[in-house]
Design a protein around this nucleic acid. Structure first.
Lengths: 113, 113
DNA sequence: TCGATATATTGACGGATGTCGATATGTCTA
DNA sequence: TAGACATATCGACATCCGTCAATATATCGA
């Protein structure tokens, strides 16, 4: 929306490198990890070298089964996690490229320093 | 709270590396960047090599002055940004070490790959 | 096909969050 | 000291989010 605008006070900033749409997308990615339960889920998936059954997450997280299912959906929607059906069970694994993207953004895309 | 619990189905997970408190702290950090306005603010601070006056942010963001002030407080509270008073104006700058911490966490603390 | 089990969806609830207008606080200048 | 200006705080509002119980859907085994 209103990006351009004359700036008179202090030192003028360069046009922000991120567009409004990019900022929304970036925020969505960070928001996906903005909950302790999802941080721990991602941590579990990261430390495991194989896809993890969701049934292994229900207990340790101390959350009800629908709540865990809700968090997994959020992570999948954010593109951080992949879902795989194995018979009766649902297995989830980390999407390495998405995590690398997240780390790159957190590193401010090299603009920092 | 309830971390330990016998797991029978599928492949048992190792004890999560992150404690509950660590997960909360990590989530707080990510939550600070879970809003488009704050992403753009951090981007501005990152692309600028000097502290930035908050008056330069009010216009380009298209938000009311109290709202920008609110976001700056969130970023300061999260430890990502530092506030500095210069006479009548408030200048903000990125805390490089905090950003590096965030990038390291996003990189899953080296546990990934 | 039927029952058992695993997971997802729905609906509801309380609390957190982003936003703004109005106002307060703080700092410079005359 | 008084007025002007920059920023922060307050109060209110709508919306979003995490959580759970209840229920639906899907898959396996008998």
């Amino acid at each position: 929306m209103s990006i351009a605008e004359p700036i008179t006070c202090c030192a003028p900033l360069d046009q922000p490198a991120l567009s409004a749409a990019e900022a929304v997308a970036t925020a969505e990615l960070f928001k996906a990890l903005g909950d302790p339960a999802r941080v721990r889920i991602v941590n579990c998936l990261a430390t495991a070298n194989e896809p993890v059954c969701i049934c292994d997450l229900n207990g340790p997280l101390g959350l009800a089964q629908p709540t865990v299912s809700h968090h997994m959906k959020k992570l999948v929607d954010a593109g951080l996690v992949e879902r795989e059906q194995r018979g009766k069970w649902a297995f989830f694994s980390l999407k390495r490229d998405a995590v690398e993207t997240l780390a790159a953004v957190a590193d401010l895309k090299g603009a920092c320093c």
